[in-house]
Design a protein around this nucleic acid. Structure first.
Length: 584
RNA sequence: GGAGUGGUAGCUCAAUUUGGUUAGAGCAUCUCACUGUCACUGAGAAGGUUGCGGGUUCGAGCCCCGUCCAUUCCGCCA
């Protein structure tokens, strides 16, 4: 008899079927046993009636079962409206235990959030049976399919680039792979296919994409997987920055609706310059699902004559439409001090004036001016609201207020999980002054074309030069990052010169890039989308590990135990001798 | 590398103002009963080196010091 998935059982009402899966719940009534049989497609109750089934073997939790029986509609009170397939069941005729199972180390019926993550990961093969994990694996497949479909439909060609490649001098720490054939030499795993995709452009591949594995030996974050992760890597020739935006923007809406069934806040992405996004949101990856923009009250604070504001570069505040107790304000202040704030200025609006501990130090005219600033920024100002503000060096004041803005977004439930708010962040500074090393450094991406090209590099002061570089910000995350590339040998070398590299040094590091550019490189640019991060946003997961089938915990894979020691014989083949480390 | 938080039964947690007798509970497990449950129910049982090491004390899960591990953040992430 052909095996059917439980999801398909409704098509076989009145017929005999064979179902295979795991016993996810057992309700034993002695001579009548109910088993919720789970397979990849879902769960279905099967009923083992001892008067119909002979030789019932012991059935334990997570035992692997093969059952044959008749699919039946349930009547009246027997219907369970709370579960999928609760209106049918299978009257079992025979049941075979294909395999037994030890008692699982944790329950599989919840979301798993309350279980120690490391226990889940050590037994990931069991955890995958959890509905949430199964669903994410299936949705990840959907996102991959939809991504390939969209890019393919839009004339992009997927090209696979090498995994064993060379160490790149800039950027993250590399994973190195020793060469057996060439003693003392090492491959590196790619941090991104950046250089290869640019060389593909030189090779005439007009539009490239790849769902590419990337490897970086850096410490993890909640939205940054340690070790390996995936990018949708994209590059196009002969497009300006704006043309590139118009070309790829529809992809995001397509998969957001098709794969997650969610909505876009902006049909056309906002385009916000870096300086503006810092000023208004205090971060270069703002959550634009809600407004609550930062308001400048520097002048007012300075005019108040309060000592602590005399030396600050800026005071930035937000207005929050909610009541706060003294305790809440105190604990918020504590939290913000942990983020590096010196303190938190707060006011309550009462009778059109400001109240709060410091309010008496601000005279009426200044208070009015502060409220006016908030009104001008688009706030609907009224009594009972609170203002929170931070004074510090300008960027720092913005960033601190931005952190509070994000906390308030959570507190006031302003982050609608069914909406995605995309924006291009543009006009990043090309260079940043490195205080420690007392020299200019690349602000972000050394391969970006500066606005104004070679001319700007030769004649402008480095701090005045903007890069043709952009991010996609979405719901508080940096979802993608890219640039129009610096494809002229001369301007490429000149950009590195500003950061203190001689032409000789630059040619040593990027010889293959520069010589490729000397053979007719087309103008090109692109970006890379954080595939796993996109999964997080689409399915409202707070930790990136959830969206991998086999995630790493702090660069360790807890099931297999990778990374592990290897035998001396293996090391000998690779011409490697280990240094003796003191610790561990 | 730095800071915050945490580590008690297989899992999730508790352990009382300031340290006090045998470290408790729910779920899971095991045994028995049960023909309509779907968080089945009822009766019973088993389950612990309180991360590890040291110290203070008559007495430590609790206080102190060290250490390990995890996690979040900073650094880092072209």
């Amino acid at each position: 008899m052909k095996r059917v998935l439980v999801k398909k059982a409704p098509q076989y009402i009145g017929e005999r079927v064979r179902l295979c899966g795991w016993a996810s719940k057992i309700r034993d009534h002695g001579s009548l046993i109910f088993v919720d049989l789970r397979d990849w497609s879902g769960k279905l109750q099967v009923v083992i009636d001892s008067s119909n089934v002979k030789n019932i073997a012991k059935i334990g939790l997570e035992y692997v079962l093969e059952i044959e029986g008749v699919v039946k509609k349930r009547d009246g009170a027997l219907v369970n409206k709370n579960v999928d397939l609760g209106d049918i069941e299978v009257a079992v005729e025979s049941v075979t235990v294909l395999n037994e199972s030890k008692t699982p180390p944790f329950p599989l019926d919840g979301e798993g959030d309350d279980i120690d993550e490391n226990v889940r990961l050590r037994y990931r093969y069991i955890d995958i049976r959890r509905k949430r994990v199964r669903d994410l694996i299936a949705r990840r497949h959907d996102l991959m399919m939809a991504t390939r479909q969209w890019f393919s439909d839009n004339e992009f060609t997927e090209v696979q680039t090498p995994i064993l490649t060379v160490s790149s001098p800039e950027g993250a720490r590399d994973y190195l792979i020793p060469s057996r054939i060439y003693p003392g030499k090492f491959y590196a795993l790619p941090q991104a296919p950046q250089q290869y995709k640019q060389l593909l452009m030189v090779g005439g591949v007009d539009r490239y994409f790849q769902i590419a594995p990337c490897f970086r030996d850096e410490d993890p974050r909640a939205d940054r997987h340690s070790g390996d992760f995936y990018q949708v890597d994209v590059e196009c020739s002969f497009l300006t920055q704006d043309e590139f935006f118009d070309t790829v923007e529809p992809y995001f809406g397509y998969v957001t609706e098709k794969v997650a069934g969610k909505k876009l806040k902006f049909k056309k992405f906002l385009r916000i310059p870096y300086s503006e996004v810092i000023d208004k949101y205090g971060t270069d990856k703002p959550d634009l699902r809600y407004d609550m923009t930062l308001v400048d009250i520097t002048t007012e604070c300075k005019e108040s004559g309060v000592n602590i504001f005399k030396e600050v570069g800026a005071v930035k505040g937000i207005l929050v439409d909610r009541k706060f107790s003294k305790n809440e304000i105190e604990s918020l202040t504590k939290e913000m001090k942990l983020e590096g704030a010196k303190g938190m200025l707060w006011f309550i609006i009462e009778d059109g004036k400001l109240g709060g501990s410091m309010a008496k130090l601000f005279d009426e005219k200044i208070q009015k001016s502060i409220l006016k600033n908030f009104e001008k920024a688009g706030y609907d100002v009224h009594d009972g609201q609170y203002i929170f503000a931070f004074g510090d060096e300008y960027t720092r004041a913005c960033k601190l207020t931005g952190i509070l803005r994000s906390k308030m977004g959570d507190l006031l439930n302003l982050k609608d999980p069914n909406v995605l708010a995309f924006a291009w962040i543009i006009d990043f500074p090309m260079f940043e002054w490195d205080e420690k090393r007392n020299k200019w450094d690349f602000g972000h991406n050394p391969f970006s074309m500066p606005k104004g090209g070679l001319d700007a590099l030769m004649n402008e002061s480095p701090d005045k030069i903007f890069a043709q570089q952009y991010d996609v910000a979405c719901n508080g995350y940096e979802l993608a990052s890219g640039s129009v590339r610096n494809y002229h040998p001369k301007s490429f070398i000149e950009a590195f010169k500003i950061c203190g590299y001689t032409e000789k040094e630059t040619r040593e590091k990027f010889g293959h890039m520069i010589s490729a550019f000397e053979y007719g490189a087309p103008p090109h640019g692109g970006f890379a989308i954080g595939f796993d991060r996109f999964m997080m946003i689409l399915f409202d997961e707070k930790n990136i590990k959830e969206v991998y089938a086999f995630p790493k915990s702090n660069a360790q894979e807890l099931m297999t135990g990778a990374p592990r020691e290897v035998s001396k014989e293996d090391l000998d083949i690779l011409h490697i001798e280990l240094k003796k480390e003191k610790k561990k």
